[in-house]
Amino acid sequence: MNAFLAGRLTDFGHAHEFRVYFEDTDFSGVVYHARYLQFLERARSDFLRLKGIGHRGLAEGAFGEPMAFAVRHMEIDFLRPARIDDVVRVETRTLLLGGARVVLDQRIFHGELLLLEARVKVAVISPDGRPRRMPPAVAALLEPGPREE
């Protein structure tokens, strides 16, 4: 796998850059609000992939029984807009690990300018959609990194 395509692991978690294309924007050249969800999703998926937790492997039972992650709740603060041709950086951090969930902090930056903050609660589910406990091996890979104050 080309790690460049998946962003990079960092001391705090994961960072991934995306260029804003015309298709990401509304009529004024500002990123459409729903497109930020796609940037966040791609970064979360690549964070997991680089940690050794691929979605396909989860579904096939790589950590025991088949399972998946599903977004249960998300809080988003849109602070400033990104615009066409900007390069934005999505940073993902594990905040909390529970028996059947993980809480992630995601932020989107343009340079050092904070554009968006999101807190994402992700549930661990079985193939039929029922909550299940997170396997210890998965939890170990998602342990929270250092926090910035």
Rank of each mutant, 00 (worst) to 15 (best):
A70W: 02
A70D: 00
R49K: 07
R44W: 08
P127E: 05
R107H: 04
L58I: 03
G57Y: 02
V103I: 04
R72H: 08
I84G: 02
R89C: 15
E91I: 12
L115T: 04
P66N: 12
H55W: 04
I53S: 02
G61N: 03
H55S: 04
E117V: 13
A118V: 02
R130M: 02
V71F: 01
G111P: 11
L95Y: 09
R72M: 03
M134N: 11
G54Y: 00
P135V: 14
G52Y: 03
H110E: 10
R42I: 09
A139H: 07
D128G: 13
L113Y: 05
L114H: 04
E65F: 04
L113R: 15
F47H: 14
K51T: 08
E91N: 11
E91V: 15
M67Y: 03
R83N: 06
G52Q: 05
A68K: 00
L50Y: 07
P136T: 07
R80I: 09
G54P: 02
A137F: 09
L95V: 14
S126T: 15
V103R: 06
L97T: 07
D46Q: 13
D128W: 13
R89A: 14
A137Y: 05
F47M: 08
D85N: 13
A123N: 04
D105V: 02
R132K: 12
G54S: 08
G99K: 09
I108V: 12
E117T: 12
I108Q: 08
L50K: 06
P81R: 04
V71M: 01
L48T: 04
A100P: 05
R93A: 14
R42P: 02
V87W: 06
L58V: 04
P81S: 13
G99L: 08
D128T: 15
F47R: 10
L104D: 00
F78W: 02
V103Q: 03
P127L: 12
M74D: 01
G129Y: 09
R80L: 14
K51Y: 04
S126Y: 07
F47W: 10
R83V: 07
R119I: 08
R72T: 01
A43H: 06
K121N: 06
L113Q: 15
R80V: 09
V88E: 12
L104C: 01
R80M: 10
G54F: 01
R93K: 10
Q106K: 08
A140E: 06
V87E: 15
V122P: 11
V71D: 01
F109L: 11
L95R: 13
V120T: 13
G64Q: 05
M134W: 12
I76K: 01
A82S: 14
H110D: 11
P131V: 12
V90N: 08
L104T: 00
L115A: 05
E117Q: 11
D105N: 10
A62Y: 05
F47Q: 04
R56V: 14
T92W: 11
I108T: 08
